[in-house]
Deep mutational scan, measured.
Amino acid sequence: TETYTFDSEDQAEEFAQRAQKKGYTVEKRKENGKFKVRVE
């Protein structure tokens, strides 16, 4: 499980979609103005 942090929602969304296409489970959340994407 890895967590990635992005400054913009667009970046987080793009990353999450790519990860989902590769078959990963993706969980997105906003925390302290940053966008976190957890991938497993």
Rank of each mutant, 00 (worst) to 15 (best):
T1S: 13
T1I: 13
T1D: 11
T1F: 14
T1P: 12
T1W: 15
T1N: 10
T1R: 09
E2Q: 14
E2P: 08
E2W: 15
E2A: 13
E2L: 14
E2H: 15
E2D: 12
E2Y: 15
E2F: 15
E2S: 13
T3I: 12
T3V: 12
T3A: 05
T3G: 04
T3N: 05
T3D: 11
T3H: 06
T3R: 03
Y4S: 02
Y4F: 12
Y4V: 04
Y4W: 11
Y4D: 01
Y4G: 02
Y4N: 02
Y4Q: 03
T5R: 03
T5I: 13
T5H: 06
T5G: 03
T5E: 12
T5Y: 13
T5F: 12
T5M: 09
T5P: 02
F6S: 00
F6T: 01
F6D: 00
F6G: 00
F6E: 00
F6C: 07
F6R: 00
F6L: 01
F6M: 01
F6K: 00
D7P: 04
D7T: 07
D7V: 06
D7E: 10
D7M: 06
D7Q: 05
D7A: 06
D7C: 13
D7N: 07
S8N: 12
S8Q: 08
S8V: 05
S8A: 07
S8D: 12
S8T: 14
S8E: 09
S8C: 09
S8F: 10
S8I: 05
E9D: 08
E9H: 06
E9Q: 07
E9F: 08
E9I: 06
E9W: 10
E9T: 03
E9V: 05
E9Y: 09
D10C: 09
D10W: 12
D10Y: 09
D10F: 09
D10R: 09
D10V: 10
D10Q: 11
D10H: 09
D10I: 11
D10K: 09
Q11N: 05
Q11V: 09
Q11L: 11
Q11P: 03
Q11M: 11
Q11H: 07
Q11E: 15
Q11G: 06
Q11Y: 05
Q11W: 05
Q11R: 08
A12W: 04
A12S: 04
A12H: 01
A12Q: 04
A12R: 01
A12N: 00
A12Y: 02
A12M: 09
A12E: 00
A12I: 00
A12F: 02
A12K: 00
E13P: 00
E13C: 13
E13S: 06
E13D: 14
E13V: 05
E13M: 06
E13G: 04
E14H: 07
E14F: 06
E14A: 11
E14C: 14
E14K: 09
E14L: 09
E14I: 08
F15P: 01
F15S: 01
F15T: 01
F15A: 03
F15E: 02
F15K: 01
F15V: 02
F15Q: 01
F15L: 03
F15I: 02
A16R: 04
A16C: 10
A16N: 02
A16G: 04
A16L: 09
A16H: 02
A16W: 04
A16T: 05
A16S: 06
A16D: 01
Q17P: 00
Q17N: 10
Q17S: 10
Q17Y: 08
Q17I: 10
Q17W: 07
Q17K: 12
Q17H: 09
Q17V: 11
Q17E: 12
R18M: 13
R18A: 13
R18C: 15
R18E: 13
R18H: 11
R18D: 11
A19N: 05
A19T: 05
A19E: 07
A19M: 15
A19Y: 11
Q20V: 12
Q20G: 06
Q20K: 12
Q20R: 13
Q20S: 11
Q20H: 09
Q20I: 14
Q20D: 04
Q20Y: 08
Q20M: 14
K21H: 07
K21W: 05
K21S: 11
K21Q: 10
K21L: 12
K21A: 12
K21G: 08
K21T: 08
K21Y: 06
K22Q: 13
K22G: 11
K22W: 12
K22V: 06
K22Y: 14
K22L: 15
K22R: 11
K22A: 14
K22D: 14
K22S: 11
G23Q: 02
G23E: 02
G23T: 01
G23M: 02
G23D: 03
G23S: 02
G23C: 03
G23N: 03
G23V: 00
G23W: 03
G23A: 01
G23P: 00
G23Y: 03
Y24V: 07
Y24P: 02
Y24T: 04
Y24Q: 08
Y24N: 06
Y24C: 14
Y24I: 07
Y24F: 13
Y24A: 08
Y24W: 08
Y24H: 11
T25L: 13
T25F: 13
T25M: 11
T25C: 15
T25H: 14
T25N: 11
T25K: 13
T25W: 13
T25V: 12
T25G: 07
T25Q: 12
V26Q: 02
V26Y: 03
V26W: 03
V26E: 03
V26A: 07
V26H: 02
V26K: 02
V26C: 08
E27N: 09
E27P: 00
E27T: 13
E27F: 10
E27G: 04
E27Q: 10
E27A: 08
E27K: 06
E27W: 08
E27M: 08
K28D: 02
K28P: 03
K28N: 06
K28R: 10
K28M: 15
K28A: 09
K28Q: 12
K28E: 05
K28F: 14
K28W: 11
K28G: 04
K28L: 15
K28H: 09
R29S: 14
R29E: 11
R29C: 15
R29K: 12
R29D: 08
R29V: 15
R29M: 14
R29A: 12
K30L: 12
K30I: 13
K30W: 14
K30Y: 15
K30T: 11
K30N: 11
K30G: 06
E31L: 04
E31I: 08
E31Y: 04
E31T: 04
E31F: 05
E31P: 00
E31N: 03
E31W: 04
E31H: 05
N32A: 07
N32E: 10
N32V: 02
N32T: 03
N32F: 05
N32H: 08
N32P: 01
N32W: 03
N32S: 06
N32C: 11
N32R: 04
N32L: 06
G33A: 03
G33R: 02
G33L: 03
G33E: 05
G33T: 03
G33S: 04
G33M: 03
G33F: 03
G33N: 07
G33C: 05
G33W: 01
K34F: 10
K34S: 07
K34N: 05
K34A: 08
K34M: 09
K34R: 09
K34Q: 10
K34D: 03
K34P: 00
K34E: 06
K34W: 07
K34I: 10
F35T: 04
F35K: 01
F35G: 01
F35A: 02
F35W: 15
F35E: 01
F35Q: 01
F35D: 01
K36Y: 15
K36R: 08
K36Q: 14
K36F: 14
K36M: 15
K36N: 08
V37R: 00
V37T: 01
V37A: 00
V37W: 00
V37L: 03
V37Y: 01
V37I: 07
R38F: 13
R38P: 00
R38L: 14
R38G: 04
R38I: 15
R38T: 14
R38W: 09
R38H: 09
R38M: 13
R38Y: 14
R38A: 08
V39G: 00
V39W: 03
V39P: 01
V39A: 02
V39S: 01
V39C: 05
V39K: 01
V39N: 00
E40S: 15
E40N: 12
E40Q: 13
E40P: 04
E40C: 14
E40L: 15
E40F: 14
E40W: 14
E40I: 15
E40H: 14
